[in-house]
Design a protein around this nucleic acid. Structure first.
Length: 681
DNA sequence: GAGCACTGC
């Protein structure tokens, strides 16, 4: 970590530091205020700025089949527009769907709108997210995750249950939203051709990508919504900062010494490790400040933090203390903290990139986009005016890319391509994406699906096979779906479903660094010399044996919340297997069958030990290494399959399973005949 | 002998 281990003493940070210059030219980013909780709901609804525009809006929306609605988050558009449409009788023949990138948003928005309509959630207003469907035949306003609508589209590509689809938070450009853009556009056109009830599509976004959206949806009109806004003062550094962590530290204490005690600070950083390190440094320095400085409460915030600790950011600091929250980009969208007066933006973010040639995912620290910088600044002005300290110069800001590259251009497309084919899209290679992924990425995805037997080429066209159709019915990465499909042949579908479920959640292992020896000792009894998959299976079996006992989880450093999620995923996968008439069978103690099955399903991710003790990935022939977190780290198996490659300090394989060369050859004779030969020569 | 941002079906 580049953080200076020996920070300067606190007295160096004098009021009036020369680190910053004030920028008056750019207007501050403006954000709305929340309604007063003690005001009756119908009065609150009328107080929203959007209420003024209601007649004109309805007039427009009645006529248009496409519209782009621009307004900041919370302008009331997400809760009000669906109600306006419903109340005006627009789209009454079917359901109004409103999609959200996140589950919590879909759930809480549905709750809010049901309250405003004074009905029970699940009647007129409902929501659908994975594992939860709170809707009924009465439901006319339905909030859902964008991924959920995409799943539904596989069974009903024309989305005939819906008369209006509202794609909210479109500016976030998640893979699911981007695929949905194409799906709704196609459905709209097809319904017109087939003389079905028309589909209205509304795209709601913050102030970005407007032209792109409008252009894509046949130059559809853009409607601007006013929000209630608070000005934000933007400051830039006078000089570029070579060490953004040092600059953050200086800035935090500069604000701490100058600003009233009750005003909180939110600092945007890149990851857990640097956040914990800066938290320690801040606490150390805060202890030795002069008496005129009040105490400081430093709170780290990142996704992998246990929920109880995440909740700490919402607790007000003790009277006279200042809250300083050190956060990843989780606080940009997912977690909204009230009372933030100051935002400190390092201008950096950790993000995943994908290289189609190597199939490699790289997680790297990089600069934010302008849009992201505005999003961060906006977090200072939710209730009142605020300030944002950017730890970079105005020139550097001007040179940032305007928009974050959409996820669809940064990810492995195998799953997306499979889904598009399952939707019956005729020419997936030329799908009408709003932002086209590179041809290389598309080709590499199709090749991957070809290897898995999900697609085949016929007369120059890529078509879905029967296997591919089955694979698409699983909410899984294609190779995991394939492994499940193969598992009955190896009489181990029970085991493989468990393993795939374990791999679908973040992690079931809890590894507090401070208790490393205890963790190792506790984990030893589950460790399998056959690899990480079998080790996970042992842990899961033990977990089930004690019926998910919380104490057992604590003693064994198992994340019980994620384990419960594993159970839900497992139930869902079993249900899909039943629908596909796949036999649920267990191989008992014959773990060899499980590994054989994994070898057959995951053969594209195989690596071979070389005479010099290193490994080569068999598909790309790049050198890879066993990740130290693997149970096989100290072993030297001749052949392994792995779940993923992660490029950090080296190119590491993660989650490994010991396999035989014969199994790989058996799984893909032609493919491996070539590969194994190549790597030996 | 490493260390992983954030979502979602």
């Amino acid at each position: 970590m580049p953080h200076d281990p020996d920070p300067p003493p606190a007295k160096k940070f004098k009021p009036g530091s020369v680190l910053f210059s004030l920028n008056q030219k750019k207007p501050g980013m403006l954000l709305p205020r929340k309604g007063n909780v003690s005001t009756p709901i119908d009065v609150q609804r009328k107080q929203l700025p959007i209420y003024q525009a209601k007649p004109q809006l309805l007039n427009q929306l009645r006529q248009l089949n496409n519209a782009i609605l621009i307004g900041e988050t919370g302008s009331g558009k997400t809760t009000q527009i669906p109600q306006y449409l419903y109340e005006a009788g627009i789209g009454r023949q079917g359901i109004i769907a409103i999609t959200q990138p996140r589950r919590v948003a879909a759930i809480s928005l549905a709750g809010r709108v049901a309250e405003e309509k004074r009905t029970q959630l699940g009647k007129l207003v409902g929501y659908t997210v994975r594992f939860e469907d709170v809707t009924s035949f009465e439901t006319k306003i339905k909030f859902m995750t964008d991924g959920m609508l995409l799943r539904e589209a596989i069974g009903d590509p024309l989305l005939l249950r819906y008369t209006i689809v509202v794609l909210d938070e479109a500016h976030e450009r998640t893979v699911h939203t981007d695929v949905l853009f194409g799906v709704v556009k196609t459905a709209q056109r097809r319904r017109k051709e087939l003389n079905k009830i028309p589909l209205k599509v509304l795209v709601m976004s913050a102030t970005m990508d407007v032209d792109l959206f409008s252009e894509y949806f046949n130059k559809s009109p853009v409607l601007y919504l006013e929000g209630r806004q608070h000005p934000i003062q933007i400051y830039y550094t006078k000089q570029p900062q070579s060490d953004y962590l040092q600059a953050a530290l200086v800035t935090i204490f500069q604000i701490h010494q100058e600003a009233p005690q009750s005003q909180d600070i939110l600092v945007f950083m890149t990851g857990q490790e640097e956040i914990e390190a800066l938290a320690r440094t801040c606490r150390d320095i805060a202890k030795h400040l002069p008496d005129n400085c009040g105490p400081m409460v430093v709170i780290p915030l990142y996704a992998s933090l246990p929920p109880v600790q995440q909740l700490r950011v919402f607790q007000p600091a003790p009277k006279g203390s200042r809250k300083v929250i050190l956060s990843t980009n989780i606080a940009e969208t997912s977690v909204t903290i009230s009372g933030i007066k100051y935002v400190v933006d390092t201008g950096m973010v950790k993000a995943k990139r994908f290289s189609p040639e190597s199939g490699l995912e790289v997680l790297a620290v990089q600069r934010v986009s302008k849009a992201q910088a505005w999003q961060r600044a906006g977090r200072a002005g939710r209730e009142d005016s605020g300030s944002c300290y950017r730890l970079y110069t105005e020139d550097e800001f001007d040179n940032l890319i305007p928009m974050t590259v959409p996820e669809i251009q940064r990810c492995n497309l195998a799953g997306v391509m499979l889904q598009l084919m399952a939707l019956g899209i005729p020419d997936v290679m030329n799908f009408d994406f709003m932002s086209k992924p590179s041809p290389e990425a598309v080709c590499s995805a199709v090749e991957h699906l070809e290897l898995l037997g999900a697609v085949e080429k016929k007369d120059g066209q890529v078509v879905l096979t029967a296997v591919g159709k089955k694979m698409a019915s699983f909410p899984l990465e294609p190779r995991y779906a394939k492994t499940i499909l193969l598992s009955p042949e190896f009489s181990c579908s029970e085991e493989v479903i468990s393993i795939v479920s374990l791999l679908s959640v973040d992690t079931v292992l809890y590894n507090p660094p401070a208790r490393r020896d205890e963790v190792l000792a506790a984990r030893k009894k589950f460790t399998s010399s056959e690899g990480d998959h079998m080790t996970l299976l042992h842990i899961y079996r033990a977990f089930k044996k004690v019926s998910g006992n919380k104490d057992w989880c604590r003693e064994n450093f198992v994340n019980s919340r994620n384990m419960s999620l594993v159970k839900e995923v497992q139930a869902q996968l079993k249900e899909i297997c039943l629908k596909l008439n796949l036999k649920l069978v267990s191989c008992g103690a014959d773990t060899g069958s499980v590994r054989r099955c994994l070898a057959h399903g995951m053969f594209v991710n195989a690596a071979e030990l070389q005479p010099d003790g290193t490994y080569l990935a068999l598909d790309t022939h790049q050198p890879v290494a066993i990740h130290p977190s693997s149970v096989l780290f100290q072993a030297k198996p001749a052949y392994v399959v792995f779940n993923e490659l992660l490029h950090t300090s080296r190119c590491y394989m993660r989650d490994l399973c010991l396999v035989d060369a014969d199994w790989l050859l058996d799984a893909a004779p032609e493919y491996f005949g070539r590969k194994l030969h190549l790597s030996k020569s």
